[in-house]
Nucleic acid binder design. Sequence first.
DNA 1: TCTGGGGTCCTAGGACCC
DNA 2: TCTGGGGTCCTAGGACCC
Length: 434
Amino acid sequence: MFCLADGNNFYVSCERVFRPELRGVPVAVLSNNDGACVSRSYEAKKLGVPMGAPAHELRDFVVHHGLILCSSNYSLYGDISDRFMRTLKPFASSMSGYSIDEAFLCLDGVRGDLHQLGLQIKAKVLRDVGIPIGIGIAPTKVLAKLANWAAKKWPATGGVVVLTDPARQAKLLQLAEVGDVWGIGRQLTSHLQDMGIRTAAQLAAHDPKALRRRFSINVERTARELRGEVCFSLHENLGPKKMIACTRSFGQRLYSLPDLQQAIASHIARASEKLRAQQEDCRVVQVFIRTSPFDSKGESYSRSTFVQLQTPSSDVRDLLQAAQAGLASIYRPGPAYAKAGVILMEFINPRMSTPDLFAPAPRKGSADLMAVIDKINRKQGRGTIKPARLASAHSFAMKQDRKSPCFTTSWSDLLKVGSGPCLPVNAAETSCQK
DNA sequence: TCTGGGGTCCTAGGACCC
DNA sequence: TCTGGGGTCCTAGGACCC
């Protein structure tokens, strides 16, 4: 039996934990660079604020309906996510975090009333972490997802739906459209509809073999899971990452090579840190730069290149060298660059591979040096030790005009408790509603 | 003015191997 | 005359997720 615990409007809920004035009012969280809407409160959804809408299209809601916009604050969300996962863990024999705001629990061997258990989990997370969640419990992951969907869609469920009874399963499958099923996106929905498959029930009833032939093995599995046949295990797709990407749009357009070099250096610093965290080396570094697809005037330019490392490495100096060489080969003066990124790929475990006899030897002392850098940066904050190429003020920095304080991850942002309302030390500068 | 970031998996088709 | 069978690897492109 699987249980899916999923935060409601997670980013907005995180903002509300430390900012009670945001409760009960329409709130939306924006993506990086204050670009598009990525999370909406219940009140914002009710107003009709669309998911994914660019910020400038939300003006009317702000002016006429009191919609409050927040920049995204990923260190805050990440920290609250950690607390969320820690709180869930004791409820199950095993658990698998699926995304920043979702986790699957394995309830095999759990005795007693599952609905009561769901209510307990929900109450505990609300009390200890401060965020509302929905709970779906069912024999397969796809059904647990659907149960969770139902728990959020119908408030009368109390936010907990247990799908063990076949009759209830069948009923829900008829109410859900095929596009509401986990793994069935826009394209598949339209193809399935052409075949006359409109509801989850119809998908479950369709011949799985035919689904495999027409689409893919995963559509077959999804359909089988809807019937209660387990095809996805708890720890599906776990393990080290197969690629690590760091990409960003700039806060403003960039033109010069040195500016792009800085952006690339900062991406490499972060990407190589992630790579070292999973204790692997990489063989290939991809670099790309591009203009904005939304710039109607001006030249459109998008280039990408792969740089092969002779000796696999996770040393920031090696990766930086490779990435800068790649950048130099694709950079051209003229275009208004809007975004750059690096992607590390082809990982190897250095303890389980044979070095190339003719490749240059790895740098001496690299592992020790990197370990010290990572330790210092973990303790003193990201960027305490960084490539010298990076200036302190970035020309490529993100736009985040409405960012809330890092209440839990920055000493200077801790809430000051004293007379009057609780305000963070630097609240004046970071107020959400500028 | 202003349009996110980071992942995974699958398939088809070609090249190549024994 | 008759022209196999079983595989791997690679890449590009498409689709999905949060």
